[in-house]
Design a protein around this nucleic acid. Sequence first.
DNA 1: CCAAATCCCTGCGTGC
DNA 2: TGCACGCAGGGATTTG
Length: 276
Amino acid sequence: MPELPEVETIRRALEHVLLGRCCRGVRALIGNLREPISEVLLNEFCRGEIRGVRRRAKFLLFDFPKGGCLIAHLGMTGSFRIESADFVPRPHDRALFLLDQKQILVYHDIRRFGLLRACTLMPGEEYPPEFVAFGPEPLSPEFTGAYLRERLIRCKGPVKPFLMNQKVVVGVGNIYASEALFRARISPLRAGNDLASRECATLERAIRAVLAESIEWGGTTISDYRQPDGSEGHFALNLRVYGRMGLSCLRRGCRGVICRIRQAGRSTFYCPGCQR
DNA sequence: CCAAATCCCTGCGTGC
DNA sequence: TGCACGCAGGGATTTG
């Protein structure tokens, strides 16, 4: 569930709590994630002062001395929280980062689609090598209507799954792809190469707007997602199509009813009345 | 090379 | 009450 706005919300909260703090060791608990948690590598590279908490795509990066870096992904159900050193682990807690001041950063993930991986970055290397194929950040200047047009022109398939391809643009998942297309009034079924330049520009602005707005609201809490302090994000109130199957379209003057269809194995929500 | 399908995983809601 | 089933979906992998 966590897409860019949720991960960015978590990043900001963790940065606030963790920057300058010290990690003295890591403990892996029962249960592998997407790949096994290497306690050995985590203890080698994720130790000492936490010098940065960054985000790229839906990944969080924690910077440590000597280029040490923790790559974390929340998958569908991952979350971080802070506990005191004497807490009793809960079911689905997967890893403990032992901090100073008798605190522990806990990584919790019910469905184990998440990832915790330690690596080292070479001097001057901003991101781990596995990130090279990523598309631009949607809130960065590189993400323009012209760029989107250039990519869409070679896309024969429907535009909605295309927006969720991290090689095209990162951070857009199932919820915000539907929401952005609604705002741009473009049907999710349209072939990418069918979109006019104007529509690409509209779509680019819609993606930016919906993501930026959601960050302001602290992300969308659908089921598991929580901010690190346990509070919910409130963007769910602003969702206009996602999860609204059978309900009437919220666009003024539109009498349409929101449909749910299946695209590339995922639910897509849209209004056939005003998305063309 | 691209796109669609499959798999991973667990909790929850539904229907019988 | 209990159980089978479908669904949720990010991303890696497989298949077409």
